[in-house]
Design a protein around this nucleic acid. Sequence first.
DNA 1: AAACCGGGGTC
DNA 2: GACCCAGGTTT
Length: 357
Amino acid sequence: MYQTSIDDFLEIEEFQQDLISWFLRVQRELPWRQNPTPYQVWVSEIMLQQTRVDTVIPYYDRFMQKYPNPEALAAAEEEDVLKTWEGLGYYSRARNLQTAVREVVSEYNGKVPDNAKELGQLKGVGPYTKGAILSIAYQQPEPAVDGNVMRVISRIRKVEEDIAKPKARKIIEGIVSDMISAEDPSSFNQGLMELGALICKPKNPLCDECPVQAHCRAYKEDLQEMLPIKSRKKSQRTEKYVALLIRDENHRILVQKRPEKGLLANLWQFPMIPMDKANTTDELVQWFGDQYGITIDVHKHLTDIKHVFSHIIWNLDVYSATSTGGCLQEGKGEFLSAEELQQLPFPVSHQKIARLI
DNA sequence: AAACCGGGGTC
DNA sequence: GACCCAGGTTT
């Protein structure tokens, strides 16, 4: 159904020319587009996963200044890398990137692999990032199918598969493989993504300005608003916590490092107590003493924080407190000065608490 | 195949 | 609020 016949070759060649010439004319000037090294392409593609261009730009500039090459990133402390990534989200991207870069330095003499097999085995490099590096950095005709490309191709070729399902990506990859330019796969792939970002938008696509309107089956049948078809994911669960800003007699503040797996792995936070463990202040003090080994005085309510993740909603009820006795149990955190806190990576929700200090 | 994993912009 | 964003990993 989506297969390309010999009769389509001419049509595809016109599509390639229309897309590429448009891209070369209107493309945005982005920091990772100025004669990029494979490492620069790699870093930018990881940062751009599920993240808008405008959000990434300042992070990319700072990251490249601190870690200009694989050797610099490989040698860095993980905590410093996370601090540089702070606020960008999906923190496993940063940890996987460093793991993979260390492998490139030790196994490939610091040269980013230029083949699908080795690239695909690197941590955090999936089908999209692999294709992006091969096409953009090495000019190989490999598909790089992201959310933009799924939407653009599903409209151009009237693909009615549910793009929320893994099967759809395989179909789109097959279509792109048949259409991609052998002369300039970099501009072809980037052109598809640029088209999705600037013209072929999810809502109210600007079909009047589209360089490949003549090739679009959805436009021909006035289906552009109906495609792509995407099933909606279920809504988030809500989790309620009390978060505590606890000071000791030296005005240092209790913080703890989160576990190395799961949500916000290896980031730092202020102590959080699940609301169902402590309905009253007395229960809260009791529970905290049991878990942490120290006695606290809970003072005033500081603020409420609502934080939305992709799959959870946090409601944080923030109180100030002082520690009045006892001995902090091993591994339950440490009291640090305000200056020391600034060196540590915190999730955005807890940065809002830190601002209250 | 479905769930997990952040944070911010848009409509 | 719902959806989306230059996705990947784990279960």
